Computed example of a mutant assay.
Amino acid sequence: NDYVLPNTALSEGQLDANFFQHIPYLEEMNSKENLGITWTVKVHIEPMGLYSDKISSLDELKDGATIAIPNDATNGSRALKLLADNGLITLKDTEIASVLDITSNEKNLKFKELDAPALPRTLVDVDAAVINTNYAIEGDLNPLEDAIVIESAESPYANVLAVKEENKDSEKTKALNTVLNSEKTKKFIEEKYEGSIFPAF
Rank of each mutant, 00 (worst) to 15 (best):
V43I: 14
V43E: 04
V43G: 03
V43S: 08
H44Y: 10
H44F: 11
I45R: 01
P47N: 04
M48C: 10
G49E: 06
L50V: 14
L50I: 14
Y51H: 11
S52W: 04
D53F: 15
D53I: 05
K54W: 05
K54S: 13
I55M: 02
I55F: 00
S56F: 07
S56D: 11
L58R: 15
D59F: 01
E60Q: 13
L61S: 05
L61I: 12
K62P: 05
K62C: 04
D63E: 11
D63Y: 07
G64P: 14
A65G: 09
A65P: 02
A65T: 02
A65K: 02
T66V: 14
I67G: 02
A68Q: 03
A68F: 01
A68T: 02
I69C: 08
I69N: 00
I69V: 14
P70F: 03
P70G: 09
N71T: 05
N71G: 06
D72Q: 14
A73G: 05
A73N: 14
T74K: 02
N75A: 07
N75P: 07
N75W: 06
S77C: 09
R78G: 07
A79W: 00
A79G: 04
L80M: 08
L80V: 09
K81P: 04
L82Q: 01
L82Y: 00
L82S: 03
L83P: 03
A84H: 07
D85S: 11
D85F: 07
D85Q: 11
N86Q: 07
N86K: 08
G87D: 09
G87A: 09
L88Q: 03
L88A: 08
L88P: 00
I89G: 02
I89K: 02
I89A: 05
I89N: 01
T90F: 10
L91G: 09
L91I: 11
K92W: 02
D93H: 08
D93E: 12
D93C: 06
T94M: 06
E95M: 12
E95N: 12
E95G: 07
A97Q: 03
A97D: 09
S98L: 09
S98T: 15
V99G: 11
V99P: 12
L100N: 14
L100A: 15
L100W: 10
D101M: 13
D101E: 14
T103A: 06
T103P: 01
S104M: 12
S104Y: 06
N105P: 03
N105F: 04
N105L: 03
E106S: 13
K107P: 00
K107W: 04
K107A: 09
N108A: 10
N108E: 13
N108Q: 14
L109V: 04
L109Y: 12
L109N: 03
L109G: 02
K110Y: 13
F111V: 13
K112M: 15
K112F: 15
E113L: 15
L114S: 08
A116E: 02
A116Q: 03
P117Y: 03
P117E: 00
A118Y: 00
L119I: 15
P120K: 07
R121S: 15
R121H: 13
R121V: 13
T122M: 15
T122F: 15
L123W: 13
